[in-house]
Nucleic acid binder design. Sequence first.
DNA 1: TATGAATGAGTGTTCATTCAT
DNA 2: GATGAATGAACACTCATTCAT
Lengths: 213, 213, 213, 213
Amino acid sequence: MRDHVIGEVPGTRGRIDKRLAMLDAAFRIFADVGYEQASVESIAAEAGVAKATIYNHFGDKERMFREVLRADGDRALGDHLEIVATLVTPSNNIRAALEHVGLELLIRYFDPTTVWYRRLLVAGRATFPDVLESVRTNVTERVMAALADRLSELMRRGQLRDADPAVAAEQFWALLVTPAENRTQLGTRDVTSAELRESTSRAVDTFLRAFGA
Amino acid sequence: MRDHVIGEVPGTRGRIDKRLAMLDAAFRIFADVGYEQASVESIAAEAGVAKATIYNHFGDKERMFREVLRADGDRALGDHLEIVATLVTPSNNIRAALEHVGLELLIRYFDPTTVWYRRLLVAGRATFPDVLESVRTNVTERVMAALADRLSELMRRGQLRDADPAVAAEQFWALLVTPAENRTQLGTRDVTSAELRESTSRAVDTFLRAFGA
Amino acid sequence: MRDHVIGEVPGTRGRIDKRLAMLDAAFRIFADVGYEQASVESIAAEAGVAKATIYNHFGDKERMFREVLRADGDRALGDHLEIVATLVTPSNNIRAALEHVGLELLIRYFDPTTVWYRRLLVAGRATFPDVLESVRTNVTERVMAALADRLSELMRRGQLRDADPAVAAEQFWALLVTPAENRTQLGTRDVTSAELRESTSRAVDTFLRAFGA
Amino acid sequence: MRDHVIGEVPGTRGRIDKRLAMLDAAFRIFADVGYEQASVESIAAEAGVAKATIYNHFGDKERMFREVLRADGDRALGDHLEIVATLVTPSNNIRAALEHVGLELLIRYFDPTTVWYRRLLVAGRATFPDVLESVRTNVTERVMAALADRLSELMRRGQLRDADPAVAAEQFWALLVTPAENRTQLGTRDVTSAELRESTSRAVDTFLRAFGA
DNA sequence: TATGAATGAGTGTTCATTCAT
DNA sequence: GATGAATGAACACTCATTCAT
């Protein structure tokens, strides 16, 4: 839980370092114990600054929470879109292409940073439903749409059978993620990369049986 | 949020009623705002008793939380096993049988009580990982095993192709639940029964394409 | 500043004692340093209770302040009206009657409790203008009206010349209080009873020269 | 509350302007909310400078408060002495002379700047009793002495009856100020100039009945 | 058993003040 | 001389828990 580092510089002495340290510490603490349970004091301690410094920078706890979410949300969106974009498959090997994308998505999905990010969202769900909605429309939906777009391209090329691409995308995602997630106990346990590879393989198996040309 | 009633009998003034009222109020409040955020005071108020009475009965907040979880966990397990058991299919119509079980499971899954129960688990995740583990082994795994058992029976009968029943069960569940859940925004929105039926239908479609005989 | 005691019972053990001790301590601290500057912690310490006990009883700081004001305001009104009522003078000695009432009013006015009460009002002026207004209409104006009523009676009897009784009351009060107050430095210094007697005598002198029959 | 300007020159960017702007802002804020309640931050903002600049100039909050008081105290003393000095009455019309001086004093007394200044003193009473004492000896007493001196002159001339001039001054002041002040509710309400004129007239009436030749 | 009253430890937030640039 | 950034101490208020009745 100590390896999400945005930009801390160990020998801290600059100004910007403090802000980054604070965002960073906030991310970890919020993800760890949830919004309500995270004390500003503990975030300050983790960041190595005084409590008041946090207030100087962010105004209040809520604004800090939103700032943290925004900063990481943008990065996550970029990451995922990039991965989905690789599903262009000049090659004929659909299985390999799907397994590549699937595994990459799964790796991201279970990356500690992403796991924490999901926890952040869940942790703040009751208090900040608007943030949740914003993430869904700006991240989840756009990733799903990109995936559907790629799958529809594969359908047009005859590499997948004709079907509703949105449904296909949704089900690909479900087959990929849900069985793997069940094994992590809501993120309590880590998953090995072997497990991820096996999960991907099983998901692609079933997906191709259902949607293969 | 006021319709989960374990055993309140408003007019009665006996001892047991108080205990039930307290468990009941605790369930609602815990599910509503999470373990940490739920104040013993608010639970006492909701149950119509004095704060100290809660301590007389449960010792402390944590023990009350566990009590609530256990009481409802047992009930949930029974419900789900019953539903899965209906997948005996004397008839030849697999699709109808799967859709029946799928819809029933989905209805349970999005029943307010169950939604609250999942929230309870997530809310207490950080503080009570042992409870989470216990639910997984005692509820999730047993339901999955029962489902796999039914599917394996269908495979033996030749109504589904030969495959790993555990994987099939897991993927059936994933196809069923994940797309539907994505639409509820982590439980922020309700789902209509029409949506549930459509979700079930799509899940069974794809499942049968992949696992049909 | 430690002699305003409403009902403290030294060997404190009952329930009601705590409430009185709190009101009492609040009165002293508020009067001493003002509403904003008075810390709930210090009031709790002065009352010998825990901070939370104050919140259990009064809800919040503002409600405690209002409670304190109300409790003492009622008593003050009664006191003053009683004094003014003595101005019935069956005897012919107006000077003696006026000096008696004047001295009594002045004694009350510079009684530590009353001094503190005025400080309380001034201290809360900015934050609670409504309280100030309420005291003015319910206490100040009623005392002035009672005084005017007594003076008008004396005019009817021919013991004072005919004049506007309201103005006479107002000016009697001004002659009585203001010179004395100037010597206390906004209540910083105490006044001796000799000074009060002299102030009264001078005020009555001038008042009778202006309003004597 | 924004019309007390000591020397702000908006267009200028020199050094002295900043100091004046700070003193000016401090006066307004201190008078508005009191010493303890005034935040250095708000004064800095009102003055358009950085918080640290205030500390460069005044050392700390207390020294700034004293500086502000001293600057304005001198001006107030001058004003009042000048007014009292006009009570030389070459003319025979005492009533007119007294009404002139009385009205002028009353106007000053209820001038927003003076009202704020009195609030400043009251606000700082508990924290800075020495300042209060200094104002009393350097301003109040000197104004009273000047007034007594003028009245004694009138007595010598036979325009007022023989009496203790100090007492006469004190009572003139009381008759003048107290009834008017009662109507402002400790400065919460403004007074109209008509009210001031009426108050003056009543005060002079009574004063002349008591002290007229 | 049920309760009203009390409390110690904490929470988010503000503020006067300092320091490096 | 002027500033932006940082901080320690304090404050109003909350909460899980205990105790006497």
